[in-house]
Design a protein around this nucleic acid. Sequence first.
DNA 1: CTCCTTTTCGACACTCGTGTCGATTTTAAT
DNA 2: ATTAAAATCGACACGAGTGTCGAAAAGGAG
Lengths: 200, 200
Amino acid sequence: MAEKSERTREYILDQAYKVFAQKGYKQVTMKDICEAAGLSRGGLYSHFPGTKEIFEAVLARITGVEENDFAREIRNGTPAAVILEGALEAMEREMDHPEESLGMALYEYAEAVDPAVLESLNRKAEERWSALISYGIKTGEFRKVDVEELVNVILYSYQGIRMWSSIISLKREVPRSVIRHIRRELVGDETSNARTDGGK
Amino acid sequence: MAEKSERTREYILDQAYKVFAQKGYKQVTMKDICEAAGLSRGGLYSHFPGTKEIFEAVLARITGVEENDFAREIRNGTPAAVILEGALEAMEREMDHPEESLGMALYEYAEAVDPAVLESLNRKAEERWSALISYGIKTGEFRKVDVEELVNVILYSYQGIRMWSSIISLKREVPRSVIRHIRRELVGDETSNARTDGGK
DNA sequence: CTCCTTTTCGACACTCGTGTCGATTTTAAT
DNA sequence: ATTAAAATCGACACGAGTGTCGAAAAGGAG
């Protein structure tokens, strides 16, 4: 039978990802996507009924892959400080390159179509960080901070920077200093450092 | 002579403010504004050439008024802790009611038309907070925090929450906990409180 | 009240994006 | 190579927003 359809569909989603990452959600038209994928509007419509469905398909493909779950590493007994460093690195990377992720598009999609998606991702991020911080406190690696408070500071300063840096050029120091703040809150002042390996 | 034009112009800007505050920037059409102002599209066009110019006029009218400047209060010798409380209250108010300010519209305008506006406002906010915190440290009211670091955390967690709460309903606790964090960083833990009046 | 100026209206032409559909090309099984 | 099914094209009708313009309706100075 014909599997051509599958291949072009995947290719469309690959290209659509780039378009959404670069332009956001609402400003993307069928024309943009069909040009990026190299087929006509008519051809594209026979694969997807609209940008909304394309975006949702793109989203569906990556949400499965996004196994940034801290829970697994916690179960593995990885020291909280190590998990934290990995998470902070990922955060910094995305704050520095907002145009490579769907961040803005996702935000706009939530605003225009369905806030529930953002709510769900938000809740998930919240749970992940709460689990990590609680774990670190329990093992004695982290200071006894107010978990909910710090999680909110982490999540929203991250989001704020990400959105801001997608339209104005932020000094590289901005994300860095926020990350430094988080690290300082959790593992104490830089002066009394060298704690990232003392866990177990 | 004819001053009717002036009056309707002001009225248009009044109504346009509400529209922009509620709908953002890009989704606002001439139709929206002329309906809000109660005149026809043709009539509106004889006052402004487009939504862009209307938004800029709205902006120009309020940026003069926005005398949230801490500098004046610092010169007056108001204790840093008092200025801080006022600022935090204002922040919390706006985080709770994002639909009453131009926040989102301004963001979209910057994205679509001119990032410089946001850059300028950003720099101004940064300077204000830096001045306040440095001042508070100098008078001994605030702890000796890393000023740049905390300013960034304050500004961007504020922006993050504001933007998020404009599309998903955030628990009231979220802005509160971030504000609590800021206060704790500056004036120390709640347990050793009653410091807001000990300044001079 | 009169009359010229200013303001306002609403219809028109235009652009851009959407979604549809029959015709045409390509695919792949035989 | 043949051929039925599937994929693709491009032209069409439509809706929504823009910006323009002459005509109509207020405004206000004398």
